[in-house]
Amino acid sequence: MLYRLEGIVIRSMDYGENNKIINVLTNTHGKVGILIRGAKKARSRHASLAQPFTYAEFTFFRTSGLGTLNHGEILASNHLLREQLELTAYASYAAELTDRVIQEEESSSFLFEQLKAYLSGLVEGKDPQIVSHLYEMRVLDMSGYAPVLDHCVECGGEQTPFRISAAAGGVLCRRCGHKDPQGIVLSEAAYKLLRLFVRMDLRRLGSIQVKPETKQELKKVMRMLMDLHIGIPLKSRGFLDQLDKYSL
């Protein structure tokens, strides 16, 4: 059967001497695998379609399992994401995370739009850490683990400062905070941003400035939520951590 789908390359692997297999997050059919014959050859007309983060229209044949590319048209090469080390690290993190959480042909049109907006945000110069946290929140939401932030998950109260608890699934008020000693007490700035993250569609993200100390707090919170609820070890996250050490 012939398919023609828009998609984003989230993984690219060598296959044999001259070929590549790509995993593509599509707009309508979830994640699909496509074999691109001859993609490793220097003069291959399809080599650019196998590049990570490429957004393109893919035409391929498939009866079951792996598809075979027939034709492709690049819609956005996102080449900048492969040329600047920091952007490569953040784009790789989102791509690997997506590849690991999405199953084959799992319906994910909303996440496709969010990933496309994430990559565009990086190209446009938006704060990569903030864009990354927004995407993480969308993954948590899709997985059913978006934290409750409007009120205490234990008593429904609204006594601040709140302590966020991954185990409890949201914030604990001042009276209930003792129920999770591992929870993180939130500053007012971090709390407001987290509430924004839960509601924000990446396609509507404008310019946002966040103080370094608040960004560190957000990173700690999002790391806690992702580790408990998603719990997938990612090589790309280790690379991001190494970059953070060198930037200090």
Rank of each mutant, 00 (worst) to 15 (best):
Y191S: 14
V221K: 03
D244A: 15
I230W: 04
L87F: 08
S109Y: 01
A190N: 06
Q182P: 00
F58N: 06
S48D: 06
M137S: 02
P212Q: 06
A166S: 13
H133R: 15
L240Q: 12
L193T: 15
D180F: 09
N78R: 15
G231R: 08
H29R: 14
N18P: 00
G157Q: 03
A168G: 10
E104C: 09
R4I: 14
Q242A: 11
R37I: 09
R138P: 04
A146C: 12
S247M: 11
N70F: 04
L66E: 01
L186K: 07
H229S: 07
M224Q: 13
V139G: 09
D201E: 13
L119I: 12
H229R: 02
S44I: 05
I8R: 08
S165I: 10
S64T: 15
L66C: 04
P181R: 07
K245L: 11
D241T: 10
N78D: 02
A76M: 11
F60A: 01
L172Q: 07
H151L: 09
H229W: 08
L186W: 04
E188A: 15
G67V: 13
A94Y: 03
A50M: 05
Y3R: 14
P181C: 07
R174I: 08
E57G: 09
I230M: 08
H229E: 06
L218W: 04
D201W: 05
C152N: 06
I36H: 04
P161W: 03
D150E: 11
G238F: 02
G72Y: 06
L172V: 13
G67T: 12
Q129R: 11
R199D: 02
L35W: 03
V139R: 00
V210N: 00
L186Y: 03
K215H: 01
G231Y: 01
L248C: 02
S109K: 11
K31H: 04
R82D: 01
S207N: 06
G156K: 07
R62W: 05
K245V: 12
Y118F: 15
K40P: 02
L25W: 04
N19L: 03
R203D: 00
D201M: 06
S92F: 05
R163A: 04
R43Y: 05
T68N: 04
I232E: 03
L205Q: 03
Q159N: 09
T59L: 06
L119Y: 08
G183N: 05
D244W: 09
E17P: 10
L2C: 02
S92K: 12
R43Q: 11
L228T: 10
R199Y: 01
R43G: 14
R138D: 03
G121Y: 02
I230N: 05
H46G: 02
T68I: 14
T88E: 03
H178S: 14
R199I: 11
S77Y: 07
R45E: 05
S187P: 12
F61A: 04
I130W: 01
L2A: 04
Q129H: 12
M222V: 15
K192N: 12
L5R: 09
N19V: 10
S120E: 13
G206W: 01
L66D: 01
L218C: 09
K20C: 00
S92Y: 09
A56G: 09
R37D: 01
Q84N: 11
D241K: 13
Q103W: 05
F61N: 08
F110T: 13
D141R: 15
L111F: 05
G33M: 08
G125A: 10
Q182M: 04
L2I: 15
I184M: 07
D127A: 11
G38T: 11
